[in-house]
Design a protein around this nucleic acid. Structure first.
Lengths: 214, 214
DNA sequence: CGAAGCTTGTGAAAACAATCACAAACTCTG
DNA sequence: CAGAGTTTGTGATTGTTTTCACAAGCTTCG
């Protein structure tokens, strides 16, 4: 298909559109204009159309987009709808919260393995899972064919864990550890760094008058 | 001072630099070049210099940047070092994990109030705090002079909670609820949307060959 | 002290992303 | 079925961020 590149912000907007479309579909709405989607998403109609045009043309001029079709198409593009198996490393509080987080399950993300290196945690039951020794990550992840890894360890363990994931065939990692991971280009890595988010808030608080872009 | 605008990505990079500088200072290193900082941060030396130049010029040509000074200066810029009081709304698992998250405390973020609307949770002890009724948020937040709010509620409660925060004088909000909040321009808002992060991973997995920009 | 060697700070250029603006294509109405 | 009214898809434009490239300034060493 056409170009081979999409900006991160465009991708995030697509996720938002999908959520709005789901709501519209529940309301039984049949079609929707780029204008309406834009309003909900805090953007412009031209932006919506550009974003969608990366993947084809789904709308009818004069009418708008058919809600169910566009929702299905977007879901397909974003990989929502099928089930994704996830391995979680770090059986701490944050790991437990993510494990229990309903939003994940509802979106098709299934945690199929939990690892830790703390002997007191290894062997504990988490729902129908049992916390495994991180030393066995390679074998376990391979056996289960997991594709996505979530790193919720302290900073100093994160790099090793991520490398073990990559060695075990995982190619997409979501990292919550407050540290920059260095991984092969071929691995898709996203960071959720809570301290950085808060620091950005503080910056705004201490620099009134400054604009934090985008 | 000079311009009045900084891009979000530049701000995030500054947070990273700060972390690296702290590590370098612990190692007793006296000076560091933009090149070294760039290598650690996965960027380029020119980018580092541009980022820093927003706030003045801290380096010495031929030598690099003095590590302790630059660290102190960056910490000041990002508001690290002083204590920030935080109010947390949503006494669920994720809220509890954030409350206990050591990275926050270490960076000066102190949760001084926790709210929920569930009668079974209200009144419970969390460390030295007690979960308060979200109905009393306004008075409590005002009394404590809280500046930062964290929303960890389900999606449908988030907007109301955020508005209550704003009404109580909070001007910086970190939102974990999977929903777009509409707030006055004057409020600084940042979103952490876990589903969107995972969807971006899935996108990369299903669209091999595509590049997700920046 | 003068020359060689680094490294910064910053205009200028390039790459990238958002917005504009409009022809083309559809619907709806009478 | 023709004309009025919408709304898409997209080239052109504008704006923003990153990268380039180099003069200027500092250090070190003979």
């Amino acid at each position: 298909m056409s170009p081979r590149r999409i900006s991160d912000s465009a991708l995030q907007r697509l996720s938002h559109y999908l959520r709005f479309l789901e709501a519209f579909e529940d309301e039984g709405r049949e079609t929707i204009s780029s204008e309406d989607l834009a309003e909900r998403g805090g953007t412009t109609s031209a932006q919506v159309r550009k974003d969608l045009s990366h993947f084809g043309s789904f709308g009818k001029r004069g009418l708008g987009y058919p809600v169910p079709e566009l929702r299905a198409r977007l879901a397909g593009i974003l990989g929502v709808g099928r089930q994704w198996d996830v391995a979680l490393v770090g059986a701490g509080k944050l790991g437990a919260a993510l494990y229990a987080y309903d939003g994940f399950r509802r979106r098709g993300f299934h945690v199929v393995a939990v690892f830790d290196d703390d002997p007191r945690k290894i062997g504990r039951r988490w729902g129908q899972l049992e916390v495994e020794d991180v030393a066995t990550l390679g074998a376990s992840v391979r056996a289960k064919g997991v594709e996505i890894g979530i790193v919720v360890t302290p900073a100093d363990a994160a790099q090793d864990v991520a490398e073990a994931m990559v060695a075990a065939g995982i190619t997409a990692i979501l990292n919550f550890a407050p540290r920059k991971l260095v991984l092969p280009e071929s691995v898709t890595l996203r960071d959720v760094n809570l301290a950085i988010e808060l620091e950005a808030l503080c910056f705004a608080l201490t620099h009134e008058g400054w604009i934090v872009g985008r």
